[in-house]
Amino acid sequence: MSFEQIVFYFFAAVLILAAGAVITVRSAVHAALFLVLAFFTTAALWLLLEAEFLAITLVLVYVGAVMVLFLFVVMMLDINAAPMREGFARYLPVAALVAVLTVVVMVMAVGREHFGLDQFAAPERMSADVSNTRMLGEQLYTVYLYPFEIAAVILLVAIVAAIALTLRRRPGTRYQSVEKQVRVRSEDRLKVIKMNAEERK
């Protein structure tokens, strides 16, 4: 076994364990952290494929931005996982049967016999002076121009949808009105009332 294979199997094993942990651990914060681990190991696998730019982007964008945001959200919400697990035991037999069948069929179809290196040769290695980033950029803005633009439109739709769904005034929610707070004067808050002293009984 070459060194490269050892590295691959190590990261692949960690990836599978982390991905499994994401959906099985009880705490949502732990699940998010395991997802970070899964992204890191995926990035390592991409490095092995000589996709340096994508690997670094994955870490920067997903781990650096998306997951941090995700952690914030998870920590701000009070999620109790117990009610979500209620139907688990009831559906387990059927779900397990379907899952096992699917996995068996998948292994039979994409196992080594049909998908091994002897059927599909490994791609040739690029020489060290080939810039991955440059190639990506060239492809993205020429051959893949049309899909690239559509992906941009999808992001725009995501922004529009997110704002349309969250920007609203719900009756009964309490929120601060900053301009009112700034404009307030002491007279609005404190009223000095002159009263006649009461007679002592």
Binding site: P147, I150, V153, I154, V157, A158, V160, A161, L165
Partner: peptide, 17 residues
């Protein structure tokens, strides 16, 4: 495959919202 998938996602995302 790429444009088919992206078109489908664009449509689906709009419909979910």
């Amino acid at each position: 495959f790429l444009t088919l998938y992206l078109g489908l996602e664009l449509l689906s995302l709009s419909m979910y919202a």
